[in-house]
Amino acid sequence: KWTITVQGEEAIKWAIKVAEARNLDYTVHIDGDQAHITIE
């Protein structure tokens, strides 16, 4: 299990796209213009 933090709307969209493309189980916690994405 690991967490990445991305900043900015484009980076958030990209990170989610990558997680979905790899069929990963993930949760997103949005904090202002940052998102913390935890991959199970």
Rank of each mutant, 00 (worst) to 15 (best):
K1D: 06
K1Q: 10
K1L: 07
K1R: 13
K1G: 10
K1P: 06
K1S: 11
K1N: 10
K1M: 09
K1Y: 10
W2T: 05
W2Y: 10
W2L: 08
W2P: 03
T3S: 06
T3D: 03
T3P: 02
T3E: 08
I4D: 01
I4R: 02
I4C: 15
I4K: 01
I4P: 01
I4W: 10
T5F: 07
T5M: 09
T5Y: 10
T5D: 04
T5V: 13
T5G: 02
T5R: 03
V6H: 00
V6G: 01
V6I: 11
V6S: 01
V6R: 00
V6L: 08
V6Y: 03
Q7K: 12
Q7L: 13
Q7T: 13
Q7P: 02
Q7R: 11
Q7Y: 14
G8I: 14
G8N: 03
G8M: 05
G8F: 12
G8V: 09
G8Q: 01
G8P: 01
G8T: 04
G8R: 02
G8E: 02
E9C: 15
E9F: 11
E9Y: 10
E9N: 09
E9L: 11
E9G: 07
E10M: 07
E10R: 10
E10P: 06
E10F: 12
E10G: 06
E10I: 11
E10C: 15
E10V: 09
E10N: 10
A11H: 05
A11T: 06
A11G: 08
A11K: 11
A11I: 07
A11D: 06
A11C: 15
I12V: 05
I12R: 03
I12P: 03
I12T: 03
I12F: 08
I12L: 13
I12M: 06
I12W: 06
I12E: 02
K13Q: 10
K13R: 13
K13M: 05
K13H: 07
W14D: 11
W14Y: 09
W14I: 13
W14Q: 14
W14F: 09
W14V: 12
W14N: 14
A15N: 00
A15G: 02
A15V: 14
A15I: 15
A15E: 03
I16D: 02
I16H: 01
I16G: 01
I16R: 03
K17A: 15
K17D: 07
K17M: 13
K17Y: 08
K17T: 10
K17H: 10
V18N: 05
V18Y: 15
V18A: 09
V18E: 13
V18H: 07
A19Y: 04
A19P: 00
A19V: 14
A19S: 02
A19W: 03
A19D: 00
A19I: 15
E20T: 10
E20H: 06
E20Q: 12
E20S: 10
E20F: 05
A21V: 05
A21T: 09
A21Y: 10
A21S: 11
A21C: 14
R22I: 14
R22P: 03
R22L: 15
R22Y: 15
R22M: 15
N23D: 06
N23L: 08
N23R: 09
N23G: 15
N23W: 07
L24R: 04
L24E: 03
L24P: 02
L24I: 06
L24Q: 04
L24T: 03
L24V: 05
D25R: 15
D25S: 14
D25G: 09
D25M: 14
D25Y: 12
D25E: 11
D25I: 15
Y26A: 02
Y26G: 01
Y26W: 07
Y26F: 13
Y26L: 03
Y26M: 04
Y26H: 02
Y26R: 00
Y26V: 06
T27Y: 09
T27Q: 08
T27P: 00
T27N: 05
T27S: 09
T27C: 09
V28E: 01
V28T: 02
V28N: 00
V28R: 01
H29M: 12
H29W: 14
H29Q: 12
H29N: 08
I30R: 11
I30Q: 06
I30P: 02
I30N: 04
I30L: 10
I30D: 02
D31V: 13
D31L: 08
D31S: 11
G32F: 05
G32N: 05
G32P: 02
G32M: 05
G32A: 06
G32R: 04
G32I: 06
G32W: 08
G32D: 05
D33P: 06
D33T: 09
D33H: 06
D33V: 07
D33W: 08
D33N: 11
Q34N: 09
Q34K: 14
Q34M: 14
Q34I: 15
A35Q: 04
A35P: 03
A35V: 13
A35I: 10
A35G: 05
A35R: 05
A35K: 04
A35T: 07
A35E: 01
H36K: 12
H36Q: 10
H36P: 00
H36N: 05
H36W: 14
H36I: 15
H36C: 13
H36Y: 14
I37C: 04
I37Q: 00
I37R: 00
I37L: 06
I37S: 01
I37Y: 00
T38R: 06
T38K: 04
T38G: 02
T38A: 05
T38I: 12
I39K: 00
I39G: 02
I39E: 00
I39T: 02
I39Q: 01
I39A: 02
I39V: 07
E40A: 11
E40G: 11
E40K: 13
E40D: 11
